[in-house]
């Protein structure tokens, strides 16, 4: 089928790509836009490694066609922080050993970011339920949960200090 131009805003930047409608968003992000943060784990909607944020929703980008994202506002892990200026969540994962191989981490942090926007004061149970769509083969989740809870506390403290 013919390719078409798909326009979307990725991490605040307007992007235009030529893609067939059947191309999955994750591959368009990775291979056409060079956003290799979101990973492909299972490719079957189960692991969450490909999680990105689309119009305020955490989405498994292996289960969305690029064409569906026409006009959408997308955030990937690249848009959260940079090596020189880590996001609080990234800093917290580093501090609390929230990753081992790191494969699940971009999806995990992107999801956690959305979770904390919707629920800035989560309980441990809220965090576990909220990241249930992200699988980690390494950590046993304990330190991931710790990292997210600690980031939440830090973000709240910063918010309070600013007021």
């Amino acid at each position: 089928m013919t390719k078409q131009i798909v326009t979307m805003t990725v991490n605040g930047e307007k992007k235009e790509v030529l893609a067939e409608p059947r191309e999955l968003l994750i591959y368009v992000l990775r291979e056409k836009m060079g956003m290799t943060g979101p990973h492909v784990g299972c490719e079957t909607s189960h692991c969450g490694a490909c999680t990105v944020e689309i119009d305020g929703k955490s989405v498994k980008s292996c289960t969305m066609f690029a064409a569906q994202a026409q006009g959408a506002e997308i955030k990937t892990i690249e848009g959260l922080g940079s090596p020189e200026n880590l996001h609080v969540l990234q800093e917290s994962f580093k501090e609390h050993h929230g990753l081992q191989c790191g494969y699940c981490t971009p999806g995990m942090i992107t999801r956690a970011h959305r979770l904390l926007i919707e629920n800035p004061n989560p309980t441990e149970e809220d965090v576990r339920f909220g990241i249930a769509g992200n699988i980690c083969r390494c950590t046993g989740y304990q330190n991931i949960v710790k990292s997210i809870l600690s980031a939440a506390a830090e973000l709240n403290a910063a918010k309070e200090a600013a007021q």
Binding site: S45, S58, V59, K60, R111, L115, I131, A132, G133
Partner: peptide
């Protein structure tokens, strides 16, 4: 039903 990501969509 499913997990958070699936429920958003």
């Amino acid at each position: 039903i499913a997990d958070p990501q699936v429920r958003y969509m």
